[in-house]
Design a protein around this nucleic acid. Structure first.
Lengths: 131, 131
DNA sequence: CCTTGACTTAGAGTCGACTCTAAGATGTAG
DNA sequence: CTACATCTTAGAGTCGACTCTAAGTCAAGG
């Protein structure tokens, strides 16, 4: 099987990942996403692997992992198999924060629903608790 | 029943709400949390109602509601019953973003677990997908 | 040949949300 | 009476994460 090696421009990569071209360059500058391949004229060329990595990083970012940590994670990935244990530890730590966030969101959801119910009650002439 | 009217200092309010005294003053300056009562000497005195409001706001904030929106919400609270509909609409909108966040977290959790499983497999001599 | 548009870099600017500092008032303990 | 803690204000500084600008390169179309 001969897989065609796609090589997206920064514009196309931006579309595929939901980031802006500015952000893609910024990520590269701070040491995330290194190294991105270049065309003969110096333009960036994003491989499918790059896109996959960026999509994964987006998930970490969306769930509150600081760029500094993501940076560390990517560095471990680049250092190869010997860092597998450390990466696994990072994932397990992040798993815990995600679980915690879900619990917080669940609690907030209950509060919101309780308050919405209060507003519904008010429409039936009851008194409202403050805020 | 005679409820004792507690009036906490800013220090005590900070302890009860998990914010710093700096943040409490900052929130007041930007028009959140107004008006906070004052002692004869000009020092802030936080009522139980203030503490309750701050705790509620903390939940909104922890779930990604921008301070500007929280500000708007508090303003509506202060304007009284006539704004109940608008407040309800805000809560319902925020409910949606919270639900969305939970879905994102769930998806990320699955990704994390999948990757952790990969690391477990690696320990049994399998190949790892990139990142 | 020249313009247009997509790219490049280094560096400056913005934004949200704090976080801290400086200078001064006041209340209590020794 | 004085030292110390705790408060007050206005305003400056920080931090994370972008976001934008300026100046320049380069390839393709008219």
């Amino acid at each position: 099987m001969d897989t065609i090696q796609v090589a997206l421009t920064i514009q196309e990569a931006a579309e595929k990942t939901g980031l802006t071209v500015h952000t893609l360059r910024y990520y590269e500058r701070i040491g995330l996403l290194m190294p991105i391949g270049r065309a003969a004229n110096g333009h960036r060329r994003y491989s499918q692997q790059d896109i996959n990595l960026i999509r994964t990083l987006n998930r970490w970012r969306q769930t509150g992992m600081p760029l500094a940590d993501i940076q560390h994670y990517v560095k471990l990935v680049q250092e190869g198999d010997s860092t597998a244990g450390q990466r696994r530890a990072m994932l397990e730590a992040h798993r815990q924060t995600v679980v915690q966030q879900m619990e917080d969101l669940q609690a907030t959801l209950e509060l919101i629903d309780y308050k919405i119910q209060n507003y519904t009650d008010i429409e039936q002439k009851q008194e409202m608790v403050y805020a």
